[in-house]
Design a binder for these strands. Sequence first.
DNA 1: TTATCTCAGGAAAACGTTTACCCAAAACTC
DNA 2: GAGTTTTGGGTAAACGTTTTCCTGAGATAA
Lengths: 342, 342
Amino acid sequence: MTSIKTVAQRAQVSIATVSRVLNGTKYVSPDIKQRVLEAVEALNYHPNAPARNLRRQRTQSIGVLIPQLNDLFFSDLAYVLEKSLFAAGYTPLFCSTENDEEKEMMSVDNFINHRVDGVILIPSVPGSKSVNSVERLLERQIPIVLVDRAMPEFQVNQVIINNQQGGYSAADYLLRLGHRHIGVVDAIGEPARYIGEPGYERTSGVQQAMLAHGVLFDNRLVIMDRLGKMEMGYHGALRLLRQSSHVTAIFALTDAIAVGVLRAASELGLHVPRDLSVIGFDDMVLASHVTPRLTTVAQPIENIGQTATRLLLGQIQASSAPPETVILETKLVIRESTAPPR
Amino acid sequence: MTSIKTVAQRAQVSIATVSRVLNGTKYVSPDIKQRVLEAVEALNYHPNAPARNLRRQRTQSIGVLIPQLNDLFFSDLAYVLEKSLFAAGYTPLFCSTENDEEKEMMSVDNFINHRVDGVILIPSVPGSKSVNSVERLLERQIPIVLVDRAMPEFQVNQVIINNQQGGYSAADYLLRLGHRHIGVVDAIGEPARYIGEPGYERTSGVQQAMLAHGVLFDNRLVIMDRLGKMEMGYHGALRLLRQSSHVTAIFALTDAIAVGVLRAASELGLHVPRDLSVIGFDDMVLASHVTPRLTTVAQPIENIGQTATRLLLGQIQASSAPPETVILETKLVIRESTAPPR
DNA sequence: TTATCTCAGGAAAACGTTTACCCAAAACTC
DNA sequence: GAGTTTTGGGTAAACGTTTTCCTGAGATAA
C-alpha cells in the first residue's frame, strides 16, 4: 500500500513536507504544495490512521456504549450521536451492551485498547452495573459523558432530561382531565429502582402529581416486568386492566410500551381514549403514526445528542473543563389517546 | 500510559516475551509466563491497538455503511451485525450514509484510512450512488459484502432475500382471499426503480402473482414518494384510497409504511381488515404489536446478519475464497390485518 | 565424549506517521 | 556590507507493537 514515502519520492520532497502539506501544520511554498497534492492524487494516497494515531497519541474516535442498538429510543440516540460526532470529525465505535455486564466490560477494554479519545455511556438499565465501566474509564482519565440516566455518585459530564417533571406533567394532565385511577406500566426487571434511572424518576413524578391533586397513589397499579418493551406493555396492561378494572388511564413509561398497552386495550374491547386514556414517553416518530395517535412526553433527543458530544469534545480539547450536568426539559404533546374519563 | 516495555521490565523479561505471552504465539515456560501475567495485572496494562494494528497490517475492524441507524429495519440489522462481529472478535465502525453521497464517500475514505479489514455495505436506496463506494473499495482490494440490495454488476459477496418471492407470496395470499384491487405503497423517491432494489423486486413479485391469477395490474395503484417511511405510508395510503375507492387491499413495502397505512385507514373510517386488508414486509417486532396485528412477509434478519459476517470474514481469512451470493427466503406471517373482501 | 539438533528467549528491525531539531539561504537591520 | 533574524524544508527520533533472526544452553545421537 502506498505510503507517505512513495508520495515524497514522487513529489521530490521529504516525507516531512508531505506531512506538513497534508496537515497544514507549517507553511509550504505554493509550487511544492502543488507537487505534493498532485502526487497524492496520482497515487490515490490515503494516510495510515493507525500510524498517525500511534504517533499523535490520540485517535479522533469515541466509544459509545448503548444498551441496545435496535431499541426504538436508543437507535434514535445512536443516530443523532453518530451524526454529530461525524460532523465534528470523530469516528464513533458503537457497542450494544445488551445488559450484559461481561460484554460491557469487554467493550470498555476494547475502547481502552483502541485509545479512544472519550466515551459516551448510556448506562445499562437496570441496575448499577455500569459503575465498573465508569470507574475503569475514570481511572485512566478518559473523558466521559453519561447520557439518559444520571449517576450522581460520579463527577462526570452528564446529559439527562427532567424525567420527574416529565412524569409529573403527564400525570398532571391526566388528573386535570378528571382521571383518578392511573396505572403505570414499565418494562424493567428489578422491583428496586435506582435514583437517577429514568423509569424511577418518571414514576416518582407521577406520584408527586397525584399528591398535589390529593389523589392516593396505589402501588399495586404499578406494573413492571422484564420483557421486550412492546411485549411488556401488552402483558403489563392486560394484567393491570384485569386486576384493576377501575383504572381509566395508563401512563406507559415509554412509547414502545404504550404501543403494547394500546394492543391490550383493543384486545379487551376498550376503546382508546373513550374507555381508557394512554400516555407515552419519548415522542418517537412512531408515536404520531400509531392509531390512535399517542399523547406523549417528548424528549429533545437531537439536543441530547448534540449536548453530549459538545460536553465530551469540550473536555477532550480542554481537559481543564470541569464536568457539567445538563438537564433538558421535556414537553407534553397532546394527541388523540387521552380524554376525560366517562 | 504503561507500555509493553514497562511490563517487560517489571517481569524481568524482554518485550518479545511479553508479546508472546499475550498473543500465545510461541511457547513460553510456565514460570516466566506467570511473571508476565502478574506484571500485566499489576500494571493494568492494555496493549496499544494502533501500534499493534500498524505492525500487523490489519485492524480487526469492519466498516459498516448503513442508510440510517434509526430506521426500524436498518437498526435491527445494525444490531445483529454488531452482535455477530463482536462475537467474532471484530470491532464495527458504523456510519449512517443518510442518502448523502458525499457523506458516504467520506466514510469510505475514513474506512480506508483506518485500514478496516473489510466492509459491510447496505447500499443506499434509492439510486446507484453506492457504485462509487464499491468501486473504490474493490480498487483497494478490500473485502466487501453487500447486504439487502443486490448489485448484480459487481462480483462481490452479497446477502439478500428473495424479495420477488416475498412480494409474490403476499399478493398471492391476498388474491386467494379474493381481492382483485390491490394497491402498493412505497416510500421511495425516484419513479425509476433499479433492478435489485428491494422495493422494485417486491413490486415485481406482486405483478407476477397478479398475472398468475389473471388479474390486471394497474400501475396507478402504485404510490411512491420520498418521505419518512411511516409518514409516507400515511399520505400514500390517503392518496391511494381517495383516488381509487375500489381498492380492498394494500401491500405496504415495509412494516413501517404499513403502520402509516393503518392510520390512514382509520382516519378514513375504514376498518382493517373488514374494509381494507393491509399486509406489510419485514416482520419487525412492531408488526405483532400494532393494532390490528400485522400480516407481513418476514425477513430472516438474524440469519442475514450472520451470513453477511460469515462471508466477509471468510474472504478476509482466506482471500482466495470466491465471492458468494446468498439468497435467503422470506416467510408469510398471517395475523389480523388481512381478510377476504366484503 | 563430541557433534548435531532443538528450543526458549533476547536484540533489533520493521510498520507509517508526526514533530523536534537543524541548517542553509534569504531577508532584514543598521 | 557585515551581522542578525527569519524561514522553508530536510534529517532523524520517536510512538508501541510484532516478528525475524540470532544465540547459547540443554537434549539427543553416535
